[in-house]
Design a protein around this nucleic acid. Sequence first.
DNA 1: GTCTAATCGTGAAATTTAGAACGATTGAGA
DNA 2: TCTCAATCGTTCTAAATTTCACGATTAGAC
Lengths: 205, 205
Amino acid sequence: MKNIPRKTVDRALIYIRTLDHLIKEKRYLVSSKDLALITGISDVQIRKDISNFGKVGTPRIGYKTAELNKTLKDFVLQENVVHVALFGVGHLGTAMLRYPGFNEDNIKLVAAFEKDKSKIGKKINGVRVYPVEMAPKIIKRTHADLGIVAVPASHSQEVADIMVLSGLKGIVNFAPASISVPKSVLVKDIDFTIELLSLFCNSQR
Amino acid sequence: MKNIPRKTVDRALIYIRTLDHLIKEKRYLVSSKDLALITGISDVQIRKDISNFGKVGTPRIGYKTAELNKTLKDFVLQENVVHVALFGVGHLGTAMLRYPGFNEDNIKLVAAFEKDKSKIGKKINGVRVYPVEMAPKIIKRTHADLGIVAVPASHSQEVADIMVLSGLKGIVNFAPASISVPKSVLVKDIDFTIELLSLFCNSQR
DNA sequence: GTCTAATCGTGAAATTTAGAACGATTGAGA
DNA sequence: TCTCAATCGTTCTAAATTTCACGATTAGAC
Ligand SMILES: NC(=O)c1ccc[n+]([C@@H]2O[C@H](COP(=O)([O-])OP(=O)(O)OC[C@H]3O[C@@H](n4cnc5c(N)ncnc54)[C@H](O)[C@@H]3O)[C@@H](O)[C@H]2O)c1
Ligand SMILES: NC(=O)c1ccc[n+]([C@@H]2O[C@H](COP(=O)([O-])OP(=O)(O)OC[C@H]3O[C@@H](n4cnc5c(N)ncnc54)[C@H](O)[C@@H]3O)[C@@H](O)[C@H]2O)c1
């Protein structure tokens, strides 16, 4: 298997999202220029990304939406369902538990973990809330792949440690604090504050 | 003013966040190596980033937390308060309205806009919810700089157009669909689905 | 069948970003 | 005072990523 650039993989997910949408609208063909208009990514970039996955386009015509979608999905997702464990059932965590869109994209929240006893034992949108201590056991039982940190920053390292111990391979961290994990575990920080400030800084110039 | 790399600006925000924290703990000095341990960013990268903003460190000692923090803030934030308008008071929008952390970082949610009449007129955490039609007027009155798209993807382009018309200079888009805006308006997409899938893909290799 | 315009795919150039190496500086302690 | 070890800041090198240029291909018009 060819070594595909990290950023290409990320953009492939955007192409997949876009193609899913086009297919739902019964669109059969799409050119790199069309995709560029929709996604804001340049047409050259799109063609180059796609060429990583083989020659699937037809000159003068473009790409068949269904075929391209399948090609991309085969490469980057391989029909996997991604199992995710949530830590922290507060405002943000609850929003995610209630979000119906994950299922459609092969993401399954398999369990939630809380400290607050009043939330433990409940089921939100079919997902049970467990005490944090049960995380290692439940995570193994449910085959969770990834974890989400949605606890206050003061407890983010603590839950990150549990996630690592439990064998999770990737963490999305919403807490506004860096977490330390072995380098075999990937971390994606999503700090709304930083995103807003960054946008503001960059719009100022 | 020197042209500072975009990624350096983003990392500067992480340094600021970290320094805020250290200062709160009454820590006066910090070396690039310390910061590297905390943030996961390499010490070389950190020194190089900081050197963009002038020589503020002392060999053998490191940086004074307060001084470095001030230097960074002067460059990238300039003591501005960022005014933000929220579109969509659903699960995610409400979580943001209720988040107390923004204030501490000079981010102010100045108004929220909704379609659902049952939500209009309410005040959440001090922020009033208006009908979308009032957005241009309220945004001008409140001097909002940025907007947040927290409506379903099916309506994201529609509200993005209103944001542009209203003069917002940057948009954080949580909807899983690309939005088209003039290139003078910056967009930051945050698609939880894509973040999770990306993490999964990258952890698989 | 030939021509043509649109589109793909790709190799090279340019740009951005990260990393490595290393000299310069400084405070602490012998 | 002199040495030393820690740390900063800068320059050079390397890697990753994007952009550019252009040839190759193909469906459709005539
Ligand atoms: N809500 C937002 O818009 C927003 C914006 C920026 C950053 N964040 C960050 O996202 C994270 C979650 O935000 P939120 O608004 O949902 O916070 P929240 O306070 O509403 O929820 C946090 C939840 O985590 C639980 N918790 C605390 N310690 C725990 C532990 N050790 N193990 C398990 N659960 C624990 C709490 O009981 C609570 O239910 C925070 O780190 C916050 O700083 C949120
Ligand atoms: N909640 C999550 O965890 C999550 C995860 C991934 C993506 N998202 C995306 O984030 C966005 C918001 O998610 P959510 O969970 O808050 O959705 P939600 O359905 O809870 O809330 C959406 C809100 O937008 C309002 N709205 C609809 N059309 C509008 C319009 N034209 N103008 C103003 N308001 C309008 C609705 O009345 C509703 O209150 C959606 O695009 C969703 O796909 C959310």
